[in-house]
Amino acid sequence: MMKAAVAPKIENQTKVQEKVDLPWNVVVLNDPVNLMGYVTLVLQKVFGYPAEKAERMMMEVHEQGRSIVWSGNFEKAELYVSQLHAKQLRATMEKVK
């Protein structure tokens, strides 16, 4: 009984910690100028993603207008957005709902 009562508490703490650590999405938005191959290359360079994953995200940007390319803490999200802006990609960040 004791063990069963303690276990959910730890799980809750983990979930709360997860929310603190992972509250922001980095979003890449579509634009009519940036080339598809370039967007894929930038996602590989900035996030270290394998080609297939970067290409999948690029296609999502192209077809749906946006793609969440990374989630994590605020400071790191800001850093990633600044790196994407430096590559002239339209990027923003939003709080995970």
Partner: peptide, 13 residues
């Protein structure tokens, strides 16, 4: 102009 346009996307900061 371009850097200002990109900054406009960053309402969070």
């Amino acid at each position: 102009v371009l850097s200002a346009e990109l900054a406009e996307l960053m309402e969070a900061s």
